[in-house]
Amino acid sequence: MSPFFFWTASALMLVFGAAVIINRNPVASALSLVVSFLGLAALFMSLDAFFLGIIQVLVYAGAVMVLFLFIIMLLDLRAEERRRINFVAFAGGAAVAVIFFGQLYLVIGHLHQAKLPFAPLAPMQVDDVHRIGLLLFGSYNLPFQIIGVLILVATIGVIVLSKRELH
């Protein structure tokens, strides 16, 4: 993985991630989130996780973002009007986030493995979809089935939640 590719994809992801929380218009935020996730998918690819990169683009940039945009359009949300900001709360929230990042930075700095480069991979005999599939249906079979039940429950829950009550 070349450093140029890594830093380009990271910058793309972080700049558009910042745009998500800065934009006042929810539609612009949702579209920034798509670009941010495309950058993240590129980073997955740079870590040789091709399957997850594809899944990221399909599930997030495809399905989840369409759902977000659909809801934004359905609720007909406009750009927020400016409200009076509670400055104490705003400064407090920003300070918590900055302190959190500082602490994370210190921990990463003290981790001596963090300074090591990635070991080279052997040429792949079988592709990673194959390996992940073997793990999913082998050692992780029970969690996989629980996930299936979870999705069923979520589907029924969404239908119940969005059904109009009959009076």
Binding site: P3, L43, L47, I108, Q113, K115, P117, F118
Partner: peptide, 9 residues
């Protein structure tokens, strides 16, 4: 690119 760079990002 090291592991630390990915963790930082």
């Amino acid at each position: 690119v090291t592991l630390g760079d990915y963790l930082f990002v």
